[in-house]
Simulated assay, not measured.
Amino acid sequence: MPKLRFLFLAVVVLAITAGCASKENKSETAPTANVQNETPAEPNNETAAEEPPVEDPIPPDTTTLANTSGKTLFRSITSNKNGDGHASIGIVSKGGTVIAADPNTMATDTTGLIKADIITVTHNHSDHTDEAYIEANKLAGEVKYSEYALETFTVKDVTVTGISSGHSAIFSPDAPSNVIYVYEVDGLRVAHMGDVAQNELTEEQIGQIGKLDIAFLPFSDVTENGFTPAKTVKILQQLQPKIASPLHYTPEAAEVILQELGITERSETDVLTVDKADLDKIKGTSYVFLK
């Protein structure tokens, strides 16, 4: 009997030991994989700022105002050759200094860029300026730009003076509606008078303009723009230049003006080249139309 009790106790102990071991194994936590929950990078919606396309420079026009004459050169430089648009004049000194006076409708896409050393604009009307041409010149290199400014400056062998004037019969010296530009070049005194439309010049203006060799001014009869033949006749009588050349013009008005002034020496040309000796030979005033 004691042996049986001993065996029974031994069996019970073994059973209890096995159960405890089983519970311990079940209570152990299974290892987990080391997974990194990385947040995916957000897409970069920012794009690099687009740079404006670089425009090819306009090729230079080396022929229109080429001057090998040994004299001062003058030429109409607008592509608008009708009477209303005829206001843009190119002037080139003996030394090659280029002036573009009231450039408008410049045909840079077909002829190339006339590189100017000086650009002057007499007033703010669209038929006397060309923003694309002016900006192209600024990009192409140094240029002196004078926009209806009462100033005097010198570039190379040319001195320029802006003089207050009126685009109508009403003239306020302190608030000019037009600026007359006078160029001193190669011993000549040349005026581009823009759309001057005063009934007559004042004594002060005549003194500032001085003794002219060449005057560019309207030969027109468009009263809504202030132009009449009588005004041009009066101004030419006051200034008495050696050469008078039309800006805005009508053939009928030009004929009236020339008849009134008794000008019989008349010519038309693509290019005018003159020096002081040539002008000294002219008696009175000669009319030259730049085609």
Score class of each variant (00 low, 15 high):
Lys3Glu: 15
Leu4Thr: 07
Phe6Ala: 09
Phe6Asp: 13
Leu9Glu: 08
Val11Ser: 11
Ala18Pro: 01
Glu24Thr: 05
Pro31Leu: 07
Glu38Gln: 10
Glu38Tyr: 09
Pro43Glu: 14
Glu46Thr: 14
Pro52Cys: 11
Val54Arg: 10
Val54Tyr: 06
Asp56Lys: 14
Pro59Asp: 09
Leu65Ser: 01
Thr68Lys: 08
Thr72Ser: 09
Leu73Val: 06
Phe74Leu: 15
Ile77His: 01
His86Ala: 11
Ser93Phe: 00
Lys94Cys: 01
Gly96Pro: 04
Val98Gln: 00
Ala101Cys: 12
Pro103Asn: 08
Asp109Pro: 03
Lys115Leu: 12
Ala116Thr: 05
Thr120Phe: 01
His128Asp: 03
Thr129Tyr: 13
Ala136Phe: 02
Asn137Val: 09
Glu142Ser: 15
Val143Gln: 03
Ala149Gly: 11
Ala149Glu: 12
Leu150Gln: 13
Glu151Met: 03
Lys156Gln: 14
Thr159Gln: 13
Val160Cys: 03
Thr161Lys: 15
Gly166Ile: 12
Ile170Tyr: 11
Asp174Phe: 03
Ala175Ser: 14
Val179Ala: 07
Glu184Val: 08
Gly187Phe: 08
Arg189Lys: 11
Val190Gly: 00
His192Pro: 00
Asp195Pro: 04
Val196Tyr: 06
Ala197Ile: 04
Gln198His: 09
Asn199Cys: 02
Thr202Gln: 08
Glu203Ile: 13
Gln208His: 09
Leu212Phe: 05
Val222Arg: 14
Val222Pro: 00
Thr228Ala: 11
Thr228His: 02
Ile235Ala: 07
Gln237Asp: 13
Gln237Gly: 13
Pro241Asp: 07
Pro241Val: 09
Lys242Gly: 02
Tyr249Val: 04
Ala254Leu: 02
Glu265His: 09
Arg266Met: 02
Arg266Asn: 06
Arg266Phe: 09
Thr269Leu: 08
Thr273Val: 14
Leu279Arg: 05
Ile282Gln: 02
Tyr287Asp: 00
Val288Met: 01
